[in-house]
Design a protein around this nucleic acid. Structure first.
Ligand SMILES: NC(=O)c1ccc[n+]([C@@H]2O[C@H](COP(=O)([O-])OP(=O)(O)OC[C@H]3O[C@@H](n4cnc5c(N)ncnc54)[C@H](O)[C@@H]3O)[C@@H](O)[C@H]2O)c1
Ligand SMILES: NC(=O)c1ccc[n+]([C@@H]2O[C@H](COP(=O)([O-])OP(=O)(O)OC[C@H]3O[C@@H](n4cnc5c(N)ncnc54)[C@H](O)[C@@H]3O)[C@@H](O)[C@H]2O)c1
Lengths: 209, 209
DNA sequence: TTATAATTGTGAAAAATTTCACAAGATGAG
DNA sequence: CTCATCTTGTGAAATTTTTCACAATTATAA
């Protein structure tokens, strides 16, 4: 059965919310309350979960812990996944220092840059290596996920090298389309696109929202 | 007529691609070539545009310049829109120094932070003001779009203040849901969510892609 | 134990979105 | 001018996604 892309997207949102609920020591929650918390319809939440099995108890709701670990299992973020970042400019640096990824099951294991000045090891930061060692290190460490934070003009070449080195999933911040072989996934984050969406809803307020 | 959210999203992608085509001095392009460039079906591209009128010439295709300005008009990014950034931490700093927004019709006009050390004026950066002056400055400058780059725990309070000051659209980087009144739009960018999507496709390669 | 209330899981209906198929308009060669 | 070719715009069909409605299951109180 084909699972909608949007369902996977929402699963992430559910998981984030479950983390918060866990911190508040909630044990169980009904689809109704949970849905209103994340901002979807209860039936949608139940249908999203139903694609993957049964997670709740009729008459009671969902066990927060159990549901969280269920979604983690679905997403495949159960054991920590190593991530490489390519491009340690202003955005890459922000990502390197970000503590939020580890909570979600990702470890930034290493970063690469082509400029000599960026190379080295700072306390509490992942090691930054020269871009020339990229292929070898990624192979050696068995890294499957990479983040591209280089200028758009360099992004495709970097992607090609990453794929050749065994990377199977790329989070791309460069504002350009990446062409990759079948079997490799790309998610692109274009911040200007977010602003354009907002500009549009600003223009057509009332109609679109 | 209701326009799909995804259509607006794709319009941004089309526009980015048109910018590139313009730099390559292409004059016209058919929906077929254009679609293969951005990675959608030609009929989808034509349908997306058809929501807003007629932009092409039968037998010839689309005039690159004309289509670009058409999409700009649809999105409402024709005249530069001023944007405020709240939170000048590692991510906020990256956004402040980013030169890519102005090409898309946005100007980061001002930033705010609560820590005294962040306040001031650096060359080529927008002015950074204390958070206490946020409401007054946003009102004074008539800013309608803001970016939230503060910790998740502070995000809702910041959003409330922004809305009270007249902001109508928020790009939110904090990993939390923002509750805002009707008529205010929020786009959230959760980078961990991008990674989770990738982890999933890694797990279920072949099926989902 | 039995009745009542709560809440999930799910097939079917509804709504939204994408794709198709082709008429209509434009171009260019002869 | 005419014909063959190209390519858009669009109503209709197909597909996908969301929502509904309710049977099934569990909890709880009497
Ligand atoms: N900074 C932002 O806020 C922001 C926002 C949206 C999008 N982006 C995009 O993210 C990307 C990075 O942005 P940035 O502001 O950090 O740019 P930047 O110029 O500050 O950093 C780019 C880094 O990549 C390195 N680099 C260049 N080519 C490389 C290669 N082939 N291999 C390894 N390293 C290489 C450079 O040495 C530099 O350190 C760009 O594509 C940009 O458009 C940035
Ligand atoms: N850094 C990243 O790569 C990254 C990635 C994904 C998400 N995020 C999210 O983006 C947000 C910012 O991340 P960061 O790494 O830049 O954090 P940071 O701690 O480096 O910066 C936060 C800044 O916000 C300021 N601040 C706090 N409360 C404020 C308030 N009420 N008003 C004004 N300013 C206030 C702080 O003084 C600080 O300068 C966080 O919510 C984080 O989860 C960051």
């Amino acid at each position: 059965m084909r699972i909608p892309r949007t369902t996977i997207h929402r699963l992430s949102i559910y998981l984030r919310c479950l983390h918060d609920l866990r911190e508040e020591k909630s044990e169980t929650i009904s689809s109704e309350k949970f849905a209103s918390l994340v901002g979807v319809k209860p039936t949608q939440l139940r249908k999203d979960l139903a694609y993957f099995g049964q997670f709740g108890t009729r008459g009671r709701g969902y066990d927060v812990d159990k549901l969280a670990s269920g979604i983690v299992r679905i997403l495949g973020t159960g054991k920590i996944r190593k991530v490489a970042i390519v491009g340690v400019g202003s955005l890459g640096s922000a990502l390197l220092s970000y503590r939020g990824f580890s909570k979600r099951g990702f470890e930034v294991a290493v970063a690469f840059d082509m400029k000599a000045g960026k190379i080295g090891r700072r306390s509490r930061w992942p090691e930054i290596l020269p871009a020339t060692r990229m292929a070898a290190e990624i192979k050696k460490r068995g890294i499957k996920i990479a983040v591209i934070a280089v200028p758009a003009t360099a992004a495709q070449k970097v992607a090609d090298k990453l794929v050749a080195a065994g990377v199977r999933a790329i989070l791309n911040f460069a504002p350009t389309r990446l062409f990759v072989p079948r079997g490799v996934s790309v998610e692109s984050v274009d911040l200007a696109m977010g602003l354009e969406g907002l500009a549009y809803s600003l223009k057509s307020r009332g109609r679109s929202q």
